[in-house]
């Protein structure tokens, strides 16, 4: 679409264009840099057209020419760990947060407000304040440097957020939904599963999206609780940077690898995320 000079959409289009360059520009630059050779990377002025060089990716995955190279970062195991920890942690936090959010939204019980504050406080405390405690506890339980240990901690740190977000979505669903269902022959659990959950599926997707981002980018706990075989991608990347100096091509390629799963995840749930985001605006559950 071509906008005329007096179009009312001209200024919004310019603002959106600037914002798009601001937000997507660094990613575009990262992808370009990951495909450049070391020489092209530092050429001034920067080259937009160049012969692609996949050495950065080969080093990241330890394949091709970098298969036996000492400089290879070898991210495959870390990528696998990150995917498992993030998906499992996100799934558990979202499921438990959905149940807890529903309970806090619909039931009045002693300590409900205290529980909600406690759930929120798990996001307030800086990780460094509890890292030692976690380290000792996980070591005693045999969970140090294990994927299952990281799944547990990822679930815990996201559960409070998931509970709060989902409570907000359930608050937006009229209690009359359950009333109608109960009078018409359904149990509360059946009504929750069959009628209430579909009404908040946008919220569930949004919650899962946030949890996945936090889980995927989680660094503090993973760096302390994983030493070798359970290292996640961010931890592995940070340790790779110090070993053979800063290999910018490899770092850029690793950055792209770090972004791709999040991008794919959000692409898959984008429709539900939008539904979840507009939930409050529409004043009703998305459908």
């Amino acid at each position: 679409m071509i906008l005329k000079r007096n179009s009312p959409f001209l200024i919004p289009a310019i603002v959106l264009g600037i914002y798009m360059i601001y937000s997507l520009g660094p990613i575009f630059w990262l992808v370009l840099s990951s495909l450049k050779s070391r020489q092209d990377l530092f050429t001034l002025p920067p080259k937009l057209f160049f012969t692609p060089d996949l050495s950065g990716y080969e080093a990241v995955f330890g394949i091709g020419a970098a298969k036996d190279s000492a400089a290879a970062i070898g991210l495959v195991q870390s990528l696998y760990n990150s995917i498992i920890v993030s998906i499992a942690g996100t799934a558990l936090a979202t499921i438990l947060g959905t149940l807890a959010g529903y309970a806090c939204s619909r039931f009045r019980f002693v300590g409900r407000d205290d529980f909600m504050f406690f759930a929120l406080s798990t996001r307030m405390i800086p990780p460094t304040a509890v890292l030692v405690f976690y380290h000792v506890m996980f070591a005693k339980m045999g969970l140090s440097d294990t994927v299952s240990g990281l799944i547990i901690v990822t679930t815990f740190i996201n559960l409070g957020l998931a509970t709060w977000i989902m409570k907000g979505f359930f608050d937006g669903v009229p209690t009359a939904v359950e009333s109608i269902a109960k009078v018409n022959g359904y149990s509360r659990f059946y009504a929750f599963r069959k009628f209430v959950l579909p009404m908040v599926r946008g919220g569930i997707a949004a919650t899962a999206g946030f949890c996945f981002i936090f889980a995927w980018n989680e660094f503090a706990f993973s760096s302390i609780l994983s030493t070798t075989k359970a290292k996640t991608l961010p931890v592995r990347l940070s340790s790779a940077m110090g070993s053979t100096g800063i290999e910018w091509t490899q770092i850029c390629a690793a950055g792209v690898v770090l972004i791709v799963p999040v991008a794919i995840f959000f692409y898959l749930i984008r429709r539900h995320i939008l539904m979840g985001m507009t939930f409050g605006v529409l004043g009703k559950a998305g459908h």
Binding site: P174, A176, V177, I180, V183, P198, M199, A285, H287
Partner: peptide
């Protein structure tokens, strides 16, 4: 029961 606010299930 029929409520004043319809209370149909939007899904």
């Amino acid at each position: 029961i029929v409520f004043e606010g319809f209370n149909l299930l939007p899904t």
